[in-house]
Design a protein around this nucleic acid. Structure first.
Length: 331
DNA sequence: ATGGTTTTTACTGCGTC
DNA sequence: GACGCGGTAAAAACCAT
């Protein structure tokens, strides 16, 4: 991980629809406009989410200002007024932030008198229904937010529609099985994306996932393990070959080299050289080795860059890959 | 918590353009 | 002399126990 300083972290720009909404929600008085150190573009102090962010490259200059914007987002003026922050202070301790109706369990009226049996039965029914609606509402809102997040991350990672759908399904299942309490919506939706991408055979490394998520790597990993276990998802370790096309095209190497890379990986697999090693490292090394074999110019540094893996690892892996290749020819 | 394995970081030496 | 590459040692991260 390169970004040790949390204040200068780049982030993918929000989807167009979101940005439009933010700018029209915001009153346009006294904004600070400065030049971005990163790309020279304009930085507008606001964004409505307590962040000061460059509109061109997404560089986050300052975070943790007070967010005065409305809750979530609004699509028309009716929703906007409904969701604006007016009303009782909310608490995060309750799943519905303490805004819902509560019916006392005591069978007394407002003056403390006991209720008749008819009234008691009525109250009993009301309690039951109130409870039902309340939990359903909260799950709805929860799901809405999570699906938005899943969409945002998936598109930032360039994942196809199908992956988003599986991610949503995974999230829904997690919600239905009550896996959420004690875990953040963010964390679980990130895990869902990670799992879905792997299941679909278009894996993204944990680091790549972490870059687009709002939670830390360790939490994602923890939540991911938990979700996979509880849901009984069957996910094989990522196949190194599935990283090859992405690296190959990022490095502009020929199809021939790409084929060689796959071949190298298959050989390695048969000889069991690959177990225990990171699939990303293997894939990166294979691409590098293949480029070498086909006389194309690539540097370890370049491969290391696109694969986000150290050069040392590439060196070690690609020696092993070439050895495996030789052993195979001798046998 | 611990120990074993893998990956990363940092540094050095070698050959080439 | 800068660059690409190789190797090494030590630190850090990761994993299973």
């Amino acid at each position: 991980m390169k970004d040790t300083d949390t204040r200068t972290r780049t982030r993918p720009r929000p989807a167009a629809s979101e940005r439009e909404n933010e700018s029209e929600t915001e009153t346009t008085d006294e904004r600070d406009v400065l030049d971005c150190p990163e790309c020279g573009g304009k930085i507008v102090a606001d964004s409505g989410h307590g962040e000061t962010v460059c509109s061109d490259c997404g560089l986050v200059v300052a975070e943790n200002e007070i967010d005065r914007g409305p809750e979530w987002r609004a699509f028309d003026s009716r929703e906007k007024s409904q969701k604006s922050r007016v009303g009782a202070p909310t608490t995060k301790m309750m799943h519905d932030k303490g805004l819902s109706t509560n019916i006392d369990w005591r069978d007394k009226d407002a003056y403390g008198r006991s209720l008749g049996s008819r009234q008691r039965a009525k109250m009993q029914r009301l309690r039951k229904w109130n409870e039902r609606f309340r939990t359903r509402d909260s799950k709805d809102r929860n799901l809405k937010q999570a699906l938005g997040e899943i969409d945002r991350m998936a598109s930032a990672l360039g994942l196809p529609e199908t992956v988003r759908e599986t991610a949503s399904v995974i999230y829904r299942r997690a919600l239905d099985e009550n896996l959420l309490p004690g875990r953040s919506i963010e964390g679980v939706s990130t895990s869902a994306v990670y799992a879905a991408a792997r299941q679909a055979g278009v894996p993204r490394s944990l680091d790549e996932i972490t870059d687009v998520s709002r939670v830390e790597k360790s939490e994602i990993a923890r939540t991911y393990r938990y979700v996979v276990r509880e849901l009984g998802l069957e996910i094989q370790p990522a196949d190194p070959e599935s990283y090859v096309p992405r690296f190959a095209s990022a490095l502009d190497v020929s199809d021939e080299a790409e084929g060689r890379a796959r071949q190298l990986l298959r050989n390695a697999k048969e000889q069991g050289v690959h177990s225990g090693k990171s699939p990303v490292g293997l894939a990166a090394a294979a691409v590098y080795a293949a480029a070498l074999l086909t006389n194309e110019k690539t540097t370890q540094a370049a491969v290391s860059e696109v694969a986000d893996i150290s050069e040392v690892t590439i060196r070690n892996r690609y020696h092993e890959l070439l050895e495996a290749e030789q052993d195979l020819q001798l046998a």
